[in-house]
Write a protein that binds this DNA or RNA. Structure first.
Length: 605
RNA sequence: GGGGCCGUAGCUCAAUUGGUUAGAGCGUCGGACUGUCGAUCCGAAGGUUGAGGGUUCGAGCCCCUUCGGCCUCGCCA
């Protein structure tokens, strides 16, 4: 076999005269009857190779039989292209290689889609032939960025004295949080492992073991329905440290993130990153991960709304709700039908009961409200509204009247939609933010108990500790989320390292002593054997790479992703298994049980 | 579990109100061609309209069921 000496993206004019060996895939071939040109591709680029019938008649003859995506190796001389024949689109466009020897390493069937048109090809087809899809430079670039991010992280943590330690993939199922993927145990019949939703408890236990600084680039599993930015199997850059406060974790990780942005995008991220309390985020943006690329804050207008004659507003407030809204700059481009159909349906998808609106018009230099709910506002009320939003002519005011949480839930996505559609920010902007001071709990009305906002091991802020007894709803936690352009790219907290506090939290979560022992007994025990104060974070690798590579699709940054039904179209997983395998695991699937039920007395297999 | 969009040649799409033999571009195959670079020119092959059922004289189109993909609400401590 010809051993390659150069890659296909490497050769330049100054290499002229060199004898080289290249190997790769045939990207395209152009047969002129006389000369044959092939663009040879490897992951580094394209190089044009030429077969000349006059100098190499035998090789030329074989070259004419070559087809796209065949794998070949060639030996030849690097030659400068003659005047006007250079290809400025290629890095190697100043030269070509005149082939002297050709080896066909492998033929290839015609690909099911053309690499050049793959961006227009159904994703289904691309996933079924992922090995071809991943040959495309755009896909390779994404995988390369992902590789670079993990290498940067590993190098960064190593230099700071962190150790990368693996934690088990076969773990213990806990009913909290997301649905677990279960793995049956063969050696202990009728029992199951769970794949980790995160290495949370293990990394905390490592702190008890005085590992002090741990990190891991680790796969996590949550058996919930996927989304465009969510996959059942995903990767976290997982970190835990001892003897730290939130500031320590925040500083270390914003520095890492800034380094990643600098190295990969050559973008300078201003440090320290902005911080915002949860309260402020919810008040101004209706969500704990605000997109700060544009302003357009939400405003509570309940005080004005309750004075109006608009029943929708007044009755919502009477029921303890609020009226909250936003002012879309130049939003008058939305027609009445856009607002009352498209935008209203949009907020209703998020549970809003409706969308009130009014347009801001200028008459003789004076602003007034027009259309929609405008008629319900007195001139004085209208004036107050316009002032509150600092509204300008041709703006559009939109309101939702509901319980506060429900109003936020609808307005936050509406704000993002409007920001995008009204082009309130330019692409390529990165607005980082730490959201801090999360509540420790939220009240779960259905279950009549508190739920952890973060997870049950999150520590309360010291000055709020006393509220564990008196006012759990208003305890703030030492949790922090890092948010970028409205996307949560990481989150963590300082943990409870004191068994008593941990027990108290379980009580409020309505987890009984017995349940706590069953589920987390090993962990609670560990806390009693000298657990240091500790905390950590997990950065979402997939989401970071998505933003770094400018894709909205998480499948683009995963080499072998799954579909919305959790299937791998390449391997056709998941699949049925042999009865023998099931028997070894002491398992019977419902299909078999039904057969047995239907044929009583039939001998069981 | 709910809502929405989609499925026609290998790929991307078209096909009038339900009406003749389902078309085009790219790709593929064959041929031509002295320097191309998304080569060009000539020619050819290629279809169970995702699957099953129904309505109809007649279905790619209408109805039902089903499979699959994407987006989304719920879900994701």
């Amino acid at each position: 076999m010809l051993k390659r000496t150069r890659n296909c993206g490497q050769l330049r004019l100054e290499d002229s005269g060199l004898k080289v060996v290249l190997a790769g895939w045939v990207n395209s071939y152009r047969d002129h009857g006389n000369l044959v040109f092939i663009d040879l591709r490897d992951r580094e680029g394209l190089t044009q190779i030429v077969f000349n019938p006059e100098t190499q008649p035998e090789v030329h003859k074989i070259a004419r039989t070559i087809r796209c995506e065949w794998v070949i190796a060639i030996e030849g001389i690097v030659e400068p292209r003659s005047e006007g024949m250079e290809n400025p689109k290629l890095g190697t466009g100043a030269i070509e290689v005149a082939v002297e020897k050709l080896e066909i390493l492998n033929k290839a069937k015609t690909p099911p889609f053309e690499l050049d048109n793959a961006d227009k090809t159904a994703e289904e087809t691309r996933l079924a032939y992922r090995y071809i899809d991943l040959r495309r430079p755009v896909m390779q670039k994404k995988l390369k960025v992902r590789h670079k991010v993990t290498m940067l992280a590993r190098d960064y943590f190593d230099k700071l004295g962190f150790w990368e330690i693996e934690t088990p993939m076969l773990g213990k199922s806990t009913p909290e949080g997301a649905r677990d993927f279960l793995v049956p145990s063969r050696l202990v019949p009728n029992t199951f492992y769970a794949l980790p939703q995160s290495p949370q408890l293990f990394k905390q236990i490592l702190m008890v073991s005085d590992i002090e600084k741990y990190f891991q680039i680790v796969r996590c599993f949550r058996d919930e329905d996927p989304r465009a930015d969510r996959q059942a199997e995903f990767t976290q850059i997982d970190v835990e440290m001892s003897f730290v406060e939130p500031d320590d974790i925040i500083t270390i990780h914003e520095t890492l993130v800034a380094k990643i942005w600098k190295e990969i995008l050559v973008v300078d991220v201003k440090l320290p990153m902005r911080r915002m309390t949860y309260q402020e985020a919810m008040r101004d943006y209706g969500i704990d991960r605000p997109d700060l690329r544009f302003d357009m804050k939400l405003k509570d207008i309940s005080d004005i709304a309750k004075q109006t004659a608009f029943k929708v507003f007044t009755s919502a407030i009477e029921k303890g709700g609020i009226v909250k809204g936003l002012c879309a700059p130049a939003g008058e481009k939305y027609s009445r039908s856009d607002i009352e159909k498209t935008l209203t349906n949009f907020v209703m998808d998020y549970g809003a009961k409706g969308l009130a609106w009014a347009k801001v018009k200028a008459e003789d230099g004076k602003l007034s409200l027009l259309g929609g709910s405008a008629k319900f506002f007195s001139p004085e009320q209208a004036k107050q509204l316009l002032e509150r939003f600092n509204a300008k002519a041709d703006d559009l005011l939109l309101f939702v009247a509901d319980q506060e949480a429900a109003a936020n839930k609808a307005l936050a996505p509406l704000r993002c939609k409007l920001g995008r559609e009204l082009k309130l920010y330019e692409e390529g902007r990165f607005e980082f933010l730490w959201v801090v001071d999360f509540p420790l709990f939220e009240w779960n009305e259905d279950e009549k108990r508190y739920d952890s906002l973060h997870h049950p091991f999150t520590a309360p802020i010291d000055e709020d500790l006393a509220k564990l007894e008196t006012d759990p709803a208003h305890i703030r936690s030492k949790a922090y989320d890092i948010v970028l352009n409205g996307s949560e790219i990481g989150g963590g907290s300082i943990r409870i390292h004191n068994m008593k506090t941990q027990q108290k939290v379980f009580d409020l979560l309505n987890i009984s002593r017995k349940q706590a022992q069953e589920r987390f007994g090993f962990f609670l025990n560990a806390l009693e054997y000298g657990a240091p104060p500790h905390g950590g974070i997990a950065l979402g690798l997939d989401r970071m790479v998505m933003i770094l590579t400018g894709t909205e699709n998480i499948r683009d940054v995963i080499a072998f992703p799954k579909t919305q039904r959790g299937q791998c179209l390449l391997t056709e997983a998941p699949s049925e298994v042999d009865l023998k395998q099931l028997n070894e695991l002491n398992l019977r699937v419902q299909k078999h049980s039904q057969i047995i039920d239907e044929i009583p007395g039939e001998k069981q297999q």
